[in-house]
């Protein structure tokens, strides 16, 4: 017995090394499922406040740019609002409440973000206190940015679109053909559009927007434009590269969207045993 203990003691550094590596790998695996709960991430109070302070300082230098973009969007929204106003010499009628908007929007600021890994995340300065929930969509005026993964009291962490684990249901705007956007871990400006059948004709430059099928994003939020179409290695599908419209290197302010009918839709899908693709 003493021999065994002595033997183990002589190996102590190697054993400690193995144990710590196993712990690290366990943490990597346990925290990487796209919808998995995360404990040690930047949405907890201490790291969140450090990152917020850092971002406060850094963001100061990009205020002018952010302001200009917000102003541009305000102008576009005002124009859209103007078109929606009832014309004074015509009759309008109220729609049934079932047709009312099922999407609610919120805004948030990005306080930390990565683009250099295969699994990228973004941290936002709004949390459960401000009504942020898991599974909400994140986008900005340029296009889709990601999805909320975990929420704490004051902060939340989202999976960036630049994350190999995230699929966004999308469609080609011109032809209404559906597919899924997925990032392949390479260039931060490009993603792939999967599951577009070979018989479909698409053109370089076509706009890709969210489809509204996975009910996270409303229909029509821009994602990108087609960069190239090639007959891929798969016999059934095109190999489509998409240039992302959001510039992930400078995202400051984002919008969060929540589908208020998502729980109902989810339970219906579960009952019908339909696997809804996220």
């Amino acid at each position: 017995m003493l021999r065994i203990l002595q033997f183990l003691y002589s190996l102590r550094s190697f054993l400690l090394f193995v144990i710590l590596e196993v712990v690290a790998v366990w943490m990597i695996v346990a925290n990487n499922s796209p919808q998995g709960a995360a404990f040690f991430n930047s949405s907890n109070a201490l790291t969140g406040s450090v990152l917020q302070t850092q971002s406060d300082v850094v963001d100061f230098f990009s205020l002018a740019d952010a302001n200009q973009k917000l102003t541009e969007q305000n102008a576009a929204l005002l124009e859209a609002l103007n078109q929606l106003k009832p014309v004074s010499d015509s009759v309008t009628f109220e729609l049934d409440s079932a047709f009312e908007a099922t999407f609610e929007f919120r805004s948030a600021r990005v306080i930390s973000q990565t683009v250099r890994f295969a699994q990228n995340h973004i941290t936002l300065n709004k949390g459960a206190k401000d009504g942020v929930k898991e599974g909400m969509g994140i986008f900005n005026q340029e296009g889709v940015v990601g999805r909320i993964k975990t929420v704490s009291e004051n902060f939340s962490v989202g999976i960036s679109l630049l994350n190999t684990g995230l699929l966004i249901s999308s469609k080609i705007k011109a032809t209404d053909v559906f597919g899924s956007i997925n990032w392949d871990g390479g260039n931060a400006n490009e993603a792939k559009m999967l599951y577009v059948p070979r018989h479909v004709t698409a053109q370089v430059g076509d706009t890709i927007v969210s489809s509204g099928f996975n009910a996270v994003f409303p229909e029509g939020i821009p994602i990108g434009t087609i960069l190239s179409i090639e007959p891929g290695s798969d016999q059934n599908y095109h190999d489509i590269k998409v240039k992302l419209s959001a510039d992930f290197s400078k995202i400051n302010y984002v919008y969060l969207v929540e589908n208020t009918q998502l729980p109902e839709l989810d339970s219906l899908h579960q009952e019908a045993e339909v696997i809804n693709e996220y």
Partner: peptide, 10 residues
């Protein structure tokens, strides 16, 4: 913890 890459640096 700050990189949101739990376990990789470790």
């Amino acid at each position: 913890i700050f990189y949101d890459t739990i376990g990789i640096h470790a």
